[in-house]
Amino acid sequence: MEIEKSLSVITDTARAALERRGAGAGLSARAEADVQAGIPESTRRAYNSDFAAFARWCLEDGRRPLPADAATVTEYVSHLKHTPRPTTGKPYSPSSLDRAIAAIRTVHRAADRPVPETKGARKVVAGYRAELSEAKDDETRKRARPNRVDAAVPAVLRKFLADMDRTTLRGLRDAALLLLGHALAARGSELVSLNADSIKRDPDGKGLVVSVYRKKIKRWTDTKVVYGSNPVTCPVRATEALLAALVRSGRGNGPLFLRIDRHGRVAAQSQRRNAQGVLVTIGSADGRLSAEGASDMIEAVAEGAGEDGRWRSHSLRRGFVTAARAAGHDLVDIGRHGGWADGSKALLGYIEEDDGWDRNPLIGIGL
């Protein structure tokens, strides 16, 4: 029975725990839903998958996943370190091990069970990261760092756009998603959440004002997007072209970015089985493109353009920071434009390293 509960998604596990405590002893259904709303959907999906994998390993190894003890968590993390991923055959990264630990702790808290002590598991990760960092070959050392996407800077965007057919609704959508996503420094989930009425034209003709809900800082921002110097890569022109096309197709009041099939039609919902074997509906009823769909589109465009690397919707956000910093813009202005909190340490991680010469801090200090 415990194995079955541990294989449930986080929300089901938490609900079962509440039922065991009895009516009135825990959160109401409304309060529980409010708590779950504070956890990003992408995080919930990742943690669900990570904990399900942990529970399966426990079952095979004769261990208890819920509540798990410190030795079980340490053994599992050590197992991951020495076991290739089943999907790729490549080793897990230290970041993947960190996330597995976080998932185990999160499920225990959600189920109101004692959270296992993880000092031993974290020492395994620390040793693994040091081992990779000290390796002689570059590829091994890269695995010690977070698995970042490549930065879609303007030069890359021009390659992505070069062969795009912008006379079709799909081509207009793809161009606007690339250019507006870069201009807003938007996360994929923020970008696909935009509606046609999220876009307002500046009354003085300076560009667009885009109402974006910034999830990390939990605040709406009115982000200003100015005209680009090149019509081909101008985010304002690309967005206005898409809006006009949506109006012509009778969809001027709904999602800005739609699921569009290869025939130029709004793609219908579909169904598939998830990791737990449950049949789930894929795609929203209003035709809105998902964040995963946006990433898949960017990946396909990059492949078509012959660009190697890891390209996802977050490439647009990273590319904006890289380009803005290279143009000499202040980090505070960059952060506020892209929805980072002032003084965010995470923002520094988005800045691509140069060759050590152009922005060398020794320049101009009087030596």
Rank of each mutant, 00 (worst) to 15 (best):
L347G: 04
A268E: 12
G343H: 05
K119C: 09
V9T: 09
S8L: 15
W340P: 08
S42M: 07
G228A: 09
R170I: 05
V77H: 14
A151D: 05
A100G: 03
A14W: 04
G319S: 05
A185W: 11
P84M: 04
T239E: 13
L169K: 12
L362H: 12
R273C: 03
L331P: 13
D296M: 06
A245V: 05
L367K: 10
R288S: 09
V236N: 04
A70M: 01
E299T: 07
M164K: 03
A33H: 12
G26L: 09
V247R: 15
I334K: 01
S344W: 02
D286S: 00
S284E: 15
K159C: 06
H263A: 05
A46F: 00
S290C: 10
V107P: 00
A17I: 08
P255Y: 00
S211F: 06
V156L: 06
D333V: 11
Y76N: 09
A175N: 10
R251K: 10
D296C: 00
V192L: 01
P361L: 11
S95E: 13
L208I: 11
A17V: 04
G188E: 03
A121K: 01
D137H: 05
S133V: 00
F160V: 02
I363E: 10
R44T: 12
L18S: 07
L367T: 01
N195V: 15
T223N: 03
K345H: 10
T239A: 09
K90M: 09
L347C: 06
R15G: 03
G250H: 02
D261L: 05
A14K: 09
P203Y: 12
W357D: 14
A17G: 13
